[in-house]
Design a protein around this nucleic acid. Structure first.
Length: 943
RNA sequence: GCCUGGAUGGCGGAACUGGCAGACGCAAGGGACUUAAAAUCCCUUGGGGGUCUUCCCCCGUGCGGGUUCGACUCCCGCUCCAGGCACCA
């Protein structure tokens, strides 16, 4: 039968709206008697409004919605709110591009479903927010998420701004926000940090910290840049690029010699640099400079591999451990002409001897010399040098130990020496640091980026050990679903450092004490779940944001201050303030927050940090659900791949319930859900079959045969399993239980009997109830079709009762199922068409042996052979006992039970095979098949 | 490179503390029903082999080793994939 999905979905969405079932308010104060009267707040991270919602949003949000619906049916007062994120750059960027008439941007918008006549209005970022908010509400409603819309907001609403201001004042007051200084990849042209998405070249490139070692030269320092400062003990000479331009500059209170390219970088990194003179690198070649760490003098030599635009443009030469250096020395030795050009005697180069300073298991005295010579490298620009460098460094870093040449550091592992050494050298004024991009980064404006140290920026002090300790404590108290995700939280907390929480551009809330800054987007989205509890009042009474002073939030969220004072100062009603306070207390803490795994490393962890910073323990969140990322037909979903599916498209094609079950069945835990049309169509057919079945449900009557008890037993086990699965967000397993498994049980039941007991109807009703959180529209319709007058969304969740679990009856059915399969197997193997089937139930003595085996396997054969009843069967008995030692049957029945089960199923078996069926006890027969009969494996003979 | 996960049939994926790998679904094939199709119902389906009446044997959970009576599961060493790596939502 065709199911009119559209009609059903619209009908029930209308009913839900009319009856306001999703509008959740606190239970009146006097009636909060038990756990179920305490509010349960279920949340989903609000989506960013730079486009339509897509299947990824739908997937995560559905997990939350299903949980909310289950809990609601279990009798909890559940609040599932929804809001919208607008803070940040991209929306402004879109508006900007539309304003400039960017054709590509407009094409993207139109292709994304924006009507041509709306485009003009997209010049205003606020309109974009408004537009996508409307679209999102339509999608969320159409997919049937059980949202209380009275509490919606966007992050650029004035009331929300006041809330963020309060939060940051609070964090600052408690010492969690402070001024800081931090290196960033920076575009000198745009004069702003260059994030990944702002780059033309160099996605994912970070910066590295070079150590600048000071080498004295004519009253100045030649600044050698290195990533391996420990090798200062093995320096034989210095390298400069003879063709590059170098400068002598006053840097802070010293004179430095660095490449010209390094000057703006040093300036960006907080150095006062004044260039005094500039010259070619060749000017330096041949001079001697002093290694102030060791006190010896080393020559400055020319090298082409030195890149003046990398770090300081000066490199120290450690031929023992650095392949480039050894290769360059070799090349100079074999090419005296080059040296003559700079008036350097070849002897200088010939006298250079590698100085080994690291001992590494598996590597020789001078690893670079050996590697370069073995590879036959003779040229310093040989591309293989890169590879050799990496190889040696990797080994030396992990296994290397500094040798006696390293002075007081000798004996230390390379792995741990760097930090100590650098700290020492800086303290002794023998070194400095310089940051450099790890690889080329080019901004979208086509400018090469550098590393800048941003000063006086506001930071969240996530590195604070006490703050971290509190978060660890919260984490230990929390339920993480699935548990495997806990590790990721732990390592994130550990790894987290101070984070800049403000920017200069984009939409958002201005920092209350420093209005040139805007609170950055991830930083304004950490505790807003609390805002849902109040947004209702802000929306309802259209409250003037200016009244929302910090005192108001202090009172409502923290219970600080006196009611009268807060009321008179803010101009808000005392009663309203008190109601808001109660509303917050009622819904908080957050019961569950569900998100995709990519947010563990930022948003979800920040969510924890800020909660412990603001609230006492009883307001800390309870559970976090983490899920995978959506894929489409096995591939990552992305706009560029052309496999991007918006919620709107899915809803138009499949309808709400099919989309829901398609997503809910696609994956659970950390697995990535895969949206496959074939799979979804299969589920749709299954739902249609269910509809058909329920609508044409055969009449039932009160019966209590074994098969009825069997179905009841199975049903109660399914209820238990499905409920547990739902509670741990395992929607896939839940669906398996309450759709497929119950369905298979019903099929078996209807195959086994022609007379249907009331339990059949009960099972179907239960199935509809259990499926309601996943496919709520269909289930409401079926519920009504079954003659129920209530709304299923608030109907009571089925409960299981272990007293109905019946192992014997289930064992009997399992026996019959196996028996039927075995008979079929024999028919298939022999190719006989049966007219008569003879069945033999195993002799009693075999049950005796089995009983003993179940009790204790050890010494089974010996033990049972002492029983006369068994011993008379001699070899046969030993054989059976030995078989049991290897493997026991999964269920255990007595001989009587088994005989009884088969007897009462004779007509069923006869129907299945269109043959006469007879059963007898093996001990009453001499038939060869009576001999092979075993408990749970009756002898079968087919005629 | 670093930090988290992960790798199981034609496909998506199960397997609790180490105990019969492949549950459940999809796809495919065969059959029943039907005027026909769809839907539904029943059956088969990891690979290979055998002396095939409820079977038996061999191989099989990314690769190479190890621990164990026994390993998808634990340990060591790799390979590949996904996500994250902070001034971005």
């Amino acid at each position: 039968m065709e199911v009119d999905w559209n009609r059903i979905e619209e009908k029930w969405q209308r009913r839900w709206a009319e009856s306001k079932v999703f509008e959740a308010d606190p239970v009146p104060k006097g009636k909060r008697t038990g756990k179920k009267e305490k509010g349960l707040l279920v949340t989903f991270p609000y989506p960013y409004l730079n486009g339509r919602l897509h299947l990824g949003h739908a997937f995560t949000c559905l997990k939350a919605d299903i949980y909310a619906r289950v809990k609601r049916m279990q009798g909890f007062n559940v609040l599932f709110p929804f809001a919208f994120h607008a803070t940040g750059e991209p929306i402004v960027g879109v508006a900007e591009r539309v304003r400039k008439g960017d054709k590509e941007q407009i094409r993207i918008l139109v292709r994304g479903g924006v009507p041509e006549e709306e485009i003009e209005k997209f010049k205003d970022p606020r309109y974009i927010v408004e537009y996508y908010r409307r679209e999102a509400i339509e999608d969320v409603t159409r997919i049937g998420f059980s949202v209380d819309w009275r509490r919606q907001f966007t992050t650029i609403d004035p009331c929300y701004n006041r809330f963020i201001e309060w939060q940051y004042l609070k964090l600052r007051e408690r010492g969690y926000v402070s001024l800081g200084t931090h290196p960033v990849i920076w575009c000198p042209n745009c004069e702003s940090p260059t994030g990944d998405h702002d780059r033309l070249v160099g996605e994912g490139v970070s910066y590295v910290e070079f150590v600048l070692l000071k080498f004295e030269l004519d009253g100045a320092f030649l600044m050698a840049a290195t990533l391996r400062p420990e090798t200062v003990f093995g320096v034989t000479n210095m390298w400069v690029n003879p063709d590059a331009t170098y400068v002598r500059a006053k840097c802070n209170n010293e004179f430095w010699i660095v490449s010209e390219d390094a000057v703006p970088k040093l300036r960006a990194q907080g150095k006062q640099v004044e260039v005094l003179e500039s010259f070619k690198g060749s000017f330096l070649v041949g001079k001697l400079c002093k290694n102030i760490v060791l006190g010896n003098k080393v020559p400055i030599l020319p090298a082409l591999f030195v890149n003046p635009s990398n770090a300081s443009g000066v490199v120290m030469s450690v031929p023992s451990h650095a392949p480039y250096d050894w290769a360059a020395i070799k090349e100079l030795r074999s090419n005296p002409a080059l040296l003559n050009k700079y008036n350097v005697s070849v002897d200088v180069v010939k006298e250079l001897k590698p100085i080994s300073l690291i001992r590494t298991e598996g590597l020789g005295e001078n690893p670079a010399v050996e590697a370069v010579d073995n590879a036959g490298v003779t040229n310093q620009l040989d591309p293989r040098l890169e590879e050799l460098t990496k190889e040696i460094y990797k080994k030396e870093f992990h296994k290397g130990v500094l040798n006696e040449n390293a002075g007081k550091y000798s004996g230390m592992p390379v792995r741990s020496v760097k930090r100590v050494l650098v700290d020492d050298l800086i303290t002794e004024n023998k070194a400095d640091v310089m940051y450099e991009c790890a690889d080329t980064v080019i901004c979208r404006c086509n400018t090469k980026c550098i590393v800048k140290i941003l000063e006086n920026q506001w930071f969240l002090r996530y590195s604070d050990p006490e703050w971290k300790e509190k978060v660890y404590r919260l984490l230990r108290m929390m339920v993480i679903l699935p548990e495997e995700a806990r590790n990721a939280f732990e390592s994130t907390i550990e790894w987290l450092e101070d984070k800049a929480c403000v920017r200069k551009t984009g939409l958002g809330t201005r920092l209350p004490w420093d209005r040139e800054w805007i609170v950055e987007t991830l930083s304004d989205s950490t505790i807003y779940m609390a805002f849902y509890t109040l947004a209702k009042y802000f929306n309802l009474f259209n409250i003037d944001a200016s009244k929302l002073t910090p005192e108001v939030f202090n009172y409502v969220f923290l219970g600080e201050g006196s009611l009268e004072e807060v009321a008179s100062k803010s101009g808000l009603d005392e009663a309203l303030l008190e109601t808001m306070r109660d509303e917050f207390e009622y819904w908080y803490p957050v019961e569950l927050r569900v998100s995709a795994k990519e947010l563990v490393f930022n948003h979800l962890t920040f969510f924890l940090f800020h909660h412990v910073a603001i609230w006492p323990e009883d307001k800390w969140p309870r559970k976090i659900g983490v899920n995978g990322m959506i894929r489409v037909e096995g591939e990552k979903m992305s706009k560029s791949k052309g496999n991007f599916i918006t919620m709107r498209e899915a809803l138009n094609k499949y309808g709400a319930d099919v989309t829901r079950i398609g997503l809910a069945y696609a994956a659970e835990e950390l697995n990535d859900p895969d949206w496959r049309d074939k799979e979804v169509q299969g589920l749709k057919r299954r739902l249609e079959a269910l509809y058909d079945f329920v609508v044409n449900l055969p009449p039932t009557k009160p019966l209590d045969r074994e098969i009825d008890r069997w179905l009841r037993s199975r049903l109660h086990r399914r209820i238990k399993a499905a409920t547990e699965n739902y509670e741990s967000l395992k929607t896939r397993s839940a669906i398996q239980e309450c759709l497929f498994n119950i369905w298979n049980d019903l099929r078996w039941y209807m195959r086994r009997t022609n007379e249907y007991g009331d339990i059949l109807r009960e099972a179907v009703k239960t199935m509809v109830l259990l499926l309601a959180p996943v496919v709520p529209h269909l289930c409401e319709e079926l519920w009504e079709k079954m003659g129920e007058k209530t709304l299923i969304v608030t109907e009571k969740w089925p409960e299981y009762d272990e007293k109905y679990f019946n192992d014997v009856v289930e064992g009997k059915e399992a026996l019959l199922e196996n028996l039927v399969n075995d008979i079929r197997e024999i028919i298939n193997v022999t190719g006989k068409k049966p007219t008569r089937i003879l069945l033999f139930v195993a002799p009693r003595w075999k049950y005796r042996v089995l009983e003993e085996a179940v009790k204790e396997k050890e010494g089974l054969v010996k033990r049972v052979m002492q029983t006369p009843e068994v011993r008379v069967h001699g070899k046969e008995a030993v054989k059976y006992a030995e078989k049991l030692m290897k493997e026991l049957p999964p269920v255990i029945l007595t001989q009587e039970e088994e005989l009884d089960a088969i007897k009462s199923a004779l007509s069923f078996i006869g129907r299945e095979f269109e043959a006469e069926v007879e059963v007898s006890l093996a001990e009453r027969s001499t038939h060869e098949k009576a001999k092979v009969a075993e408990p749970l494996k009756p002898g079968i003979y087919i005629e």
